[in-house]
Design a protein around this nucleic acid. Structure first.
Lengths: 125, 125
DNA sequence: CCAAGCTATATGACACGTCATTGAATGACA
DNA sequence: TGTCATTCAATGACGTGTCATATAGCTTGG
């Protein structure tokens, strides 16, 4: 039974999807073009950049993004390969790692964040 | 320069991401578990189901979802393999195809739509 | 202090989406 | 009508995400 309430829900959902994909797509393409990193890479970079504590963070990153633990691990692989972050072993728990921006990483993050914020503003109104 | 406006934007964006992924994820897992189709498959099924005209529709589907043309093509592959839709050649333009639900497709769509709507209501409030 | 279980991260197999390209059909225009 | 550009859909190569599992280190109860 297709109620009008159902139709409303579906319309609402499609509009969410649409604006989500448009925004994410625009940011992703812009970052890719100008800084050669994808949106997920940037978002991890952004999380690392805003972490002030020296805590062990691979774990805590996982809690602050919808990405899977293994997705985070692979994104960090790429960031590390690109020389933007480095994994530091953690003295008090040797299973854990924490991440540090390299100088290159910090520099790139600063420019990319400007772009990111601008596109958010443009797309979220 | 990180303004508080920037922080607001970022918070807003993360909250959108979060609710988008939670909703999409919940629906996807439920449909996968109960009907053995993913969210994208369902959404194409849903679009086909609500198309009344007998127009050639592969094309028009592409305009009603954020999916790529090639993504749509592959989703339809899977739906066809699963016996839920069939591709019909189009007399007035032989490049085009239109899609039809099979009986199985219609039946599955009816049950799955109930679940889909329920989860939307639950997640979109 | 050892065994059993738990936690943090990495990895391999696999599924799916994207981009670029192809093939086929159509349209447009000299 | 013959050429050239355009449009619709399919496909292959490739990147990245997920799930299940592996590995290593920590923890706890006997």
């Amino acid at each position: 039974m297709a109620t009008t309430r159902d139709r409303q829900l579906v319309e609402q959902w499609r509009s969410i999807q649409d604006s989500y994909f448009r925004t994410a797509g625009a940011i992703d393409r812009a970052l890719e073009a100008k800084f050669d990193i994808g949106l997920n890479e940037f978002e991890i970079l952004d999380l690392v950049a805003e972490s002030t504590d020296a805590a062990c963070r691979m774990k805590s990153l996982g809690e602050r993004t919808p990405m899977t633990q293994s997705a985070v691990s692979k994104v960090v692989d790429r960031l590390e390969k690109a020389g933007l972050v480095s994994r530091q072993t953690c003295a008090d728990d040797r299973r854990s790692l924490f991440l540090e921006l390299t100088d290159a990483g910090r520099a790139l993050h600063e420019s990319a964040a400007v772009e990111h914020r601008a596109l958010l503003k443009e797309n979220l109104g």
